[in-house]
């Protein structure tokens, strides 16, 4: 059983990494909140929550990789996820629900590619 997991609202992530992905239905803000809650429960961030230069208010999709092992609170992870939430708050809201289906598909592909980069570079201690 994998000792990492993915919080994501990207259906492509859930399709490709079905057993590891906790698929949320909300916005990136909810993905960040779920990741923050996991950090408080002792998970560590494996991928950076602001991966990619696509702005978090622009992409409707976000996937974050965390360690499954519940250990002591990792303050570095907490700082990174809290800072990411602050970045999201300061950017103006965009009505991503009005994007065309083709745009949604493209944002999903970009997010999946960033996730694939993280999975390809998974530290040795983590496994499927």
């Amino acid at each position: 059983m994998a000792n990492f997991f993915i919080v994501s609202n990207n259906p492509l992530a859930a399709e490709k990494y079905a057993a590891q992905t906790q698929l949320l239905t909300g916005s990136p803000a909810e993905v960040y909140r779920a990741a923050r809650d996991a950090v408080h429960r002792g998970s560590r961030l494996i991928s950076h929550p602001l991966a990619g230069s696509v702005k978090p208010n622009e992409t409707p999709y976000r996937s974050i990789v965390l360690s499954a092992a519940g250990g002591v609170l990792d303050f570095r992870s907490l700082q990174l996820i809290e800072d990411a939430i602050l970045v999201l708050k300061k950017l103006p809201q965009r009505h991503t629900e009005q994007y065309t289906p083709a745009m949604h598909a493209d944002y999903q592909v970009i997010d999946l590619d960033l996730l694939d980069s993280a999975i390809a570079a998974l530290p040795a201690e983590f496994h499927f």
């Binding site: 990789v65 960033l114 980069s117 570079a121 998974l122």
Partner: peptide, 8 residues
């Protein structure tokens, strides 16, 4: 500038 914190 990679995606994972370990790479960084």
């Amino acid at each position: 500038e990679n995606v994972t914190l370990m790479d960084k």
